Simulated assay, not measured.
Amino acid sequence: MSRKEIEHVERHPKVILICDKVDELGGVSDVISSQISAFRVLTKFRDIKDVIIDSAPHVLILAMPSVSASIELYKTLVEQGLLDYPHENILLCENKESGVGFRCCMKHIFCDYFVYKPMYENYRLRMILHNALLRCENAHDTTHIREEHFGNIDESLKQLIDDASAYHIDAQHTLSTARKNIDQAKGVNDIQTALMNELKAQHINPLLDQLEQKLAMSIEELTNSLKNKQLSLAELSALLIEKSLPETNQKVTDYQNDKPAQNKLEAESQYIKIMVIEDNEIYREMISKILINAGHNVEAVSSGLIAIKKLKKQKYNMIFMDLFMPELDGYNTTRNIRNISHCKNLPIVALTSNKNKDLIRKWATLGLTAYIAKPSTKQSILKAVEKAKRAIAS
């Protein structure tokens, strides 16, 4: 039995995760176990059968090697009469089978699906599980979702999220009530009823469909507003929870002297010293986490002025810098950095969500190694590091 299986051996679980390779589901297990303590991972059919008979778990999460394998397993459990009680089933699938997973849910084979390869939106998995448990009995058994699950989100962003949620729920309820009232409406005689039904089919129902589409578009606009304000929850999960490269205990030492070849020597090693200049705390921590987990020596600061003071006293191999910052923006920070003797050719990677090409070109004239648009992915950040290392070595 693997370590993960040992960790999740709840005798009477409310949620079970059924899979064939436990090691590939570490991130999923961590998310589920943080949300509900009555959780167990199962890999053997005999154990699955025994647990279902003994505990009748509320939620079954299937993560077999393929969607077809998950369907076959679920079908077998049903045919053997093991699932003849109210329950929720959630499909986990790879990104390449997400379309199949969506179709399975549309056909009501599964209640919902979640793409765990790659695992980006862990908050969506929390939401799926939370809603599934609410639809089942004993929903109070779930662990309360705490504020720390969502990182350091400022109050204005929280308000935007609450507004979006309230608007969506209220609008959906209004449309649902309207459809129900229209469906129940009848004429005083058969002829009038027939005319009303024709009117519903040709005019009223299409109008309601259009309203639902506009609702969906409005929600998308609110989501974009969240993205422009700060990182959305989905993006936070993609950036903060995404599994990074294996952590290492190898350290990069500070500069001990001013030897001209120092930059080149460190660039040829695997790990380098990096400064992150970003006023957004969440984004600053995200980038730092990715770089630290990749083994690099990272120092993060919140403003260009702080960065300039440190750069005058210490040497770094490269910089990640935001464009819009208080006191001194990225362009003017870069201009001041280039006036420091040992920073004239220091690789700088620009970070911004701004799409003003003229502004980016102006910034680039000061010498940028790379440009990354927000929200960034772990891959784009580490790729920029590799590009900077090549620039140092050249």
Rank of each mutant, 00 (worst) to 15 (best):
F114M: 03
D170C: 08
H130R: 09
H149E: 09
D154H: 02
I109F: 12
A63M: 07
Y123W: 03
V115E: 01
P86S: 12
K44Y: 07
N138L: 06
T76Y: 06
E148G: 03
H130N: 14
V31Y: 01
Y113F: 10
E79M: 12
S33P: 01
H108V: 10
M64H: 09
K49I: 00
E97P: 10
G99Q: 08
H149V: 02
N89K: 15
Y116E: 01
Y113V: 02
S156N: 13
D112Q: 03
A38C: 13
A56P: 05
A56V: 10
V115P: 00
K117R: 14
D170Q: 05
R40Y: 04
H87C: 02
C136R: 04
M119W: 03
P65L: 11
I71A: 08
K117C: 05
E72N: 14
G81Y: 05
S165Y: 14
G99T: 09
H58F: 11
L60Y: 00
G101M: 02
E148T: 11
C93H: 03
I109W: 08
E79K: 15
I53K: 15
T43M: 15
N152P: 08
N131W: 03
C104D: 10
L92E: 00
C104L: 07
M127V: 06
P118W: 00
Q159N: 14
E72G: 06
D170Y: 12
S66N: 09
R135V: 11
V100M: 05
N131L: 08
C111G: 15
V41Y: 00
R103F: 04
D163A: 14
A132Q: 06
E88C: 07
I61E: 00
A171T: 13
L134K: 14
G27R: 00
L134Q: 14
P57N: 13
F39W: 08
A132S: 14
K117M: 12
V41D: 01
E79S: 15
I71R: 13
R40P: 04
A132L: 12
A139P: 02
R46N: 12
N138E: 12
V115G: 04
I32P: 04
H130L: 09
S66I: 03
Y74F: 11
Y85Q: 07
D154Y: 07
A38W: 07
A63Y: 00
L157H: 09
D163W: 09
F39M: 07
H144V: 06
L134G: 15
H140Q: 11
K49P: 03
Y167L: 14
C111V: 15
I71Q: 06
L60P: 01
